[in-house]
Design a protein around this nucleic acid. Structure first.
Lengths: 156, 156
DNA sequence: AATAAAATCATACTTTAGTATGAAGGGTTT
DNA sequence: AAACCCTTCATACTAAAGTATGATTTTATT
């Protein structure tokens, strides 16, 4: 029953509305037929009523026009790394494996908190590693560390 | 004139249709008023006509429903000459010349204070430029900005 | 076993980075 | 003229980065 209602809602409503309107018209006809100069008003009322009915009907039955707006979002892939890493330079500078891990994540733009989470370490630990890296690389900031590490090909 | 037509097409057409219908109704009225038992048919005709008018109107006036579909695409490594700067990417991102200056100095590992001194600007100005860069590059930190700018070949 | 280096964490502190908001002038376009 | 973007600067604030120092635990080496 509910399904039937949903499927034929528009039709049923239209039928009901039509019946009601016809009844209304009959009543108006009886009342206004006596005063034939009200004819124009009568016609006008009918026009408006049925225009509205038509609009309503159209809304119920018409599939909505759809403008499909396609927004293209560009994703930028990391270019293939074909640069070779200077292992000897890493050794010469005395940079440990853990420090290299941190250095690489740092160069990817991660914050200390993110690096700590990534390596399951505490933030102070990351800070220590980074401080040691700064000392070994002879820099003062992480941006400098990244720049120098790339220049020395410690990272790609 | 053409613009006026396009903007008010529905209204003009509706007006014209209404005028035509009123004329038709008047004509029908004259013809059928003599035979008052044709009244029902007359009313029926009016009903149908205006229902159709309403449907047509609704079609004209209904706002199209807009579906926004976001399509994610991978930007193929743009065949940009090696080591050259992707000017079109800079343009597409809407990055200004001043912002590029700041971006380059930032990528060299300079602090805001150093960049400000280098460009004879105040630190707040540098911060503004950098904040705008972050927005345009869709990043949160300068290290990310540098990484992305290099990947997109905005800088070398 | 003792030593050394590496790795971990902590606390406290200073400095720098980043956010939010607004204002003002110059230049260009509509 | 109005609207817009770029540029500049400012204040006030929060968040993150960086420094300094010290302690504990692994791990490898002597």
């Amino acid at each position: 029953m509910l399904v039937f209602w949903k499927k034929n809602r528009a039709v049923i409503l239209y039928g009901t509305a039509l019946a009601f309107l016809l009844f209304l018209l009959k009543w108006m006809e009886l009342k206004w037929l006596l005063y034939s100069h009200y004819m124009d008003m009568y016609i006008g009322a009918i026009s408006i009523l049925f225009t509205l009915l038509g609009i309503w009907l159209a809304k119920q039955l018409m599939k909505p026009k759809t403008n499909t707006i396609i927004v293209e979002k560009w994703l930028n892939p990391t270019p293939v790394e074909n640069g070779l890493i200077n292992e000897s330079a890493i050794e010469n500078l005395g940079i440990s494996a853990r420090e290299m891990e941190v250095l690489n994540l740092m160069a990817k733009g991660m914050s200390n908190a993110e690096i700590a989470a990534d390596l399951y370490l505490s933030i102070p630990t990351i800070k220590t590693h980074i401080a040691n890296l700064f000392f070994k690389l002879e820099v003062k900031r992480r941006t400098q560390a990244i720049e120098k590490a790339k220049r020395l090909q410690l990272i790609v």
